[in-house]
Write a protein that binds this DNA or RNA. Structure first.
Lengths: 158, 158
DNA sequence: TATAAAACAGAATTTAATTCTGTTAAAACT
DNA sequence: AGTTTTAACAGAATTAAATTCTGTTTTATA
């Protein structure tokens, strides 16, 4: 079967789409010197295999009034068992990321809100409701120099 | 002039596009009960105003061999002046995020590599070359429960 | 080597993007 | 308030792209 090997054409497609999710098949086909139908076939396959997860538009957070970014470190009793807590945190829409990190049985959560008042409210109303949270340490971001989710896509030798 | 107010139609467009960057204009127009041309006009304007920053495809990092995620805290002499250092860090493609954080004159960097060996190599070859770095503390992510860049888009009263 | 499966090209068709024009609605100004 | 200007919109026309289909080539596999 070997249901999962990506070749260099797939990787080139991923690079193009990572740069611009709205690139047309025709355009990709030209760059790859292939027929549009062949490219489309591969894209569909990449979607099915979940190599491509979704297509998203990055919006300037400030333009929609979300000016505060913070990282919250959470000390927990639940440690590495991400049952309740993971689900509870993930459910909060202001929470962009939830990670379990090594050392100090901590979780790391990235949150974006309008301002500090809203962050405060969020923590009081949502975080405080989660029983397994023992304590939190919040780090406010003063300035963001780079923020993207692009992944390095390697080249395959053979 | 008032060159920058978004109305609720704009916000609805942003919500739709944030969910799926490849949604068609026709589809949006149906949902918004507007003509496709009118929707397109707004989208173009949102792009110009940089409310829409870009369209990107999220790729499963593991599927392209990027299995390690880490956060690196950097202590620096350059403190809040993000000249050299910000640029140097931002230039590294494995670096997804660079933030200046409050307290402890620290920077926070999100990095994604294939494995810990590659992270090590990266830090030796790239980070170590940056003279303003005094020390680093690296936190490895063991598991990611949620990871998205969707922003909460509010509703405007009037 | 024979066979099966996957990848591909190219044409045909369907669907969508984009442009254009005229109209309406909303601001801006006097 | 009335006029003018500007922005937003709808709908048709046009251009471009997505998608489907079919037959061929390539690749992998027995």
């Amino acid at each position: 079967m070997m249901e999962f090997a990506l070749d260099n054409i797939d990787l080139r497609i991923l690079r193009l789409m990572q740069e611009n999710a709205r690139i047309s098949n025709v355009d990709m086909a030209k760059q790859l010197e292939m027929a549009p139908s062949a490219v489309l076939e591969r894209v569909k396959k990449l979607e099915q295999k979940q190599v491509i997860q979704h297509y998203t538009t990055s919006i300037n957070p400030a333009a929609v009034g979300q000016r505060l970014l913070a990282f919250v470190f959470i000390r927990t009793s639940e440690a590495f068992d991400r049952g309740e807590m993971g689900a509870a945190l993930a459910k909060i829409e202001e929470v962009q990321e939830v990670h379990i990190i090594a050392g100090e049985d901590c979780w790391l959560v990235k949150v974006r809100t309008a301002d500090s008042a809203e962050l405060m409210a969020l923590m009081r109303n949502k975080f405080a409701k989660i029983p397994t949270i023992q304590s939190t340490k919040t780090t406010i971001v003063l300035e963001t120099i780079k923020e993207q989710q692009k992944v390095v896509i390697p080249i395959i030798k053979k």
